[in-house]
């Protein structure tokens, strides 16, 4: 894995829980479905690991609710959806990300570059 991929992977690891909560907002989804939703947004979550342990932690922390339901004629799947606590965690995570992103942008001088004529 190249240095760029490694940094990208580490960055994603820090915000993957927020990203998962965000894609759940679109509607309940099972594990692989969430992987595909993230991939459709350019986030390859499965490079170094997988989302299952993270989903397990979110479930244990009460940030997601689960239910079993059939999926398009396939076997019953475990669907994850946001709990009220998960909604709050998502909003808090979004604010944290924006603050961190602004700070990094400032450090990298990107803000000035954007306003420069």
């Amino acid at each position: 894995m190249g240095e760029t991929d490694s940094r990208r992977s580490q960055l994603l690891r820090g915000v993957l829980d927020i990203c998962l909560l965000a894609v759940m907002r679109e509607g309940p989804a099972y594990g692989y479905e969430m992987t595909k939703r993230l991939r459709a947004r350019g986030l390859s979550t499965v490079g170094e690991g997988s989302i299952y342990p993270l989903l397990g932690r979110l479930e244990r922390d009460g940030l997601v609710e689960t239910r079993r339901a059939a999926s398009n004629g396939g076997p019953p799947r475990k669907y994850y959806s946001l709990s009220p606590a998960g909604e709050r965690a998502l909003e808090a995570g979004r604010r944290e990300w924006q603050m961190a992103r602004d700070a990094v942008d400032g450090a990298l001088d990107l803000v000035k570059a954007e306003v420069r004529p």
Binding site: G31, V46, G47, E48, G49, S50, Y52
Partner: peptide, 8 residues
């Protein structure tokens, strides 16, 4: 399986 769980 790699598409589901990555390097795991």
């Amino acid at each position: 399986a790699e598409d589901v769980v990555g390097n795991s």
